[in-house]
Simulated assay, not measured.
Amino acid sequence: MIAARGMIEEITAALGANGLILRGGIAFAASEEAPHGPSGAPARSVLLVGQAGAAPWPYFQRWREQQPQTIANPLDSWSRQVIGAVAQTFGARAVSPSDKPYQPFQQWGMQAEGLKPSPLGILMHPQYGLWHAYRGALLFEDDLSLEAVEPAIHLCDSCVDKPCLKACPVDAYSAQGFAYRSCLAHVRGAGGEPCRSGGCLDRNACPYGADFRYPPEVQVFHMAAFAGL
């Protein structure tokens, strides 16, 4: 347990050098079908890597300036490089949310941090609100003796007005789910300039985690990546 705690502290420091943070972890049950670790054997533990607010943005931008402008999915590429280096140092296998076969990052996050989804589908964090993300995970073949996490306060439960469901011009989010095609058509269309220049209006309408809200340039980047602009 002491050795694992020391390693986790070292991993935290290594990730922090690029603005990333550990977002908790879980141990896989013996009966659970877990993804494989670095040697190909089933993993026994996973640590989630992510961000709070836009902390990684300056590090990513400096890296991006040194890359070909035509590089596809630069944020994914940067995340893989940074998290992959940490995985190699500490004997883990790195996986990304965009890797196939897709890993259940949202379920892992709910278990590791005790979170629940917001009406927008993004997990609501009691401190960061909707302004956080998972960038990857570290899979270990050792049991890291991770402690169980209590459910976090779910801010959406006490939010009566639900402004996150009222700002979108095309009502992309509803009880029926996310209307992906309607959202995409609007963002790409003549009326989508507010979304292209300011980010998702529904997400920005949420009052929680305002101190961690992504700056405009970060929201523009993510919206352009989503819409293929």
Score class of each variant (00 low, 15 high):
A152L: 13
Q106L: 08
A185C: 00
H125Y: 10
G136N: 08
H154R: 04
G177S: 12
A152C: 11
E193L: 14
P97I: 07
A167E: 12
Y102F: 14
P117W: 06
E150I: 08
P97W: 11
L165T: 11
P104A: 00
W108P: 05
G192V: 07
P97R: 07
G136T: 02
Y180M: 09
Q127M: 01
A148K: 11
D202P: 00
Q107E: 14
M124G: 08
Q176Y: 08
P104H: 02
P97N: 08
Q176V: 08
L155R: 06
A133L: 12
L155F: 04
V149P: 02
V170E: 04
Y128Q: 14
A148Y: 00
Y102W: 12
P151C: 07
C206N: 10
A205R: 05
N204K: 15
C200V: 07
G129N: 05
V149Q: 14
P101N: 15
I153W: 08
R203V: 06
P104W: 01
D157F: 01
G114V: 14
A112Y: 02
C159M: 10
L201V: 07
L155D: 05
L146D: 04
A172D: 02
Q176A: 12
G129D: 08
V149M: 11
P151S: 04
G114S: 09
Y173G: 03
M110E: 13
L184G: 00
P194H: 01
G192Y: 05
D143T: 07
D171H: 13
C156F: 10
C159P: 15
L146K: 08
Y173I: 14
C164I: 03
Y173R: 13
P169A: 11
R196S: 01
A175I: 04
G191C: 11
L123N: 12
F105Q: 00
P151F: 02
L146M: 07
Q88H: 13
K116F: 11
A172T: 01
M124Q: 14
Y134V: 07
H132I: 06
Q103W: 01
S96V: 03
A205I: 07
S182G: 12
L115W: 02
P126R: 01
K116I: 00
S182T: 12
A179G: 03
W108S: 10
H132P: 00
S197R: 15
Q103F: 05
